[in-house]
């Protein structure tokens, strides 16, 4: 089943982040716990891990884009 993944809030002050790198490309499979993208916010680099096994279907933002907390980043299944 297809669903969207969204940018999590990592601190009380966090409003947005720059999606710096996709670590899983479209069509690529991943396991729960594997990092799928990297963000920078408040001078912190964090890798965000998959909450469950899945496939990266479609990336909705480009590397370097600034996105708000809760914004949809990708379609996965």
């Amino acid at each position: 089943m297809k669903k969207k993944i969204a940018l999590p809030k990592l601190s009380d002050e966090m409003k947005s982040a720059v999606l710096c790198a996709w670590l899983k490309q479209e069509g690529e499979e991943y396991k729960k716990g594997e990092p799928i993208y990297e963000i920078e916010t408040e001078k912190v680099i964090s890798q965000v891990e998959a909450e469950e096994d899945g496939i990266m279907v479609h990336q909705l933002v480009e590397e370097g884009d600034e996105v708000s907390v809760g914004a949809e980043l990708a379609e996965v299944e």
Binding site: E42, K43, V44, I45, S46, Q47
Partner: peptide, 20 residues
């Protein structure tokens, strides 16, 4: 607000993090 340390409004320390 940018996680720097200041003395009298002037910066003496810049800070950043990575998570691995």
């Amino acid at each position: 607000g940018r996680n720097d340390l200041l003395i009298d409004g002037r910066k003496i320390s810049g800070n950043s993090q990575y998570k691995l």
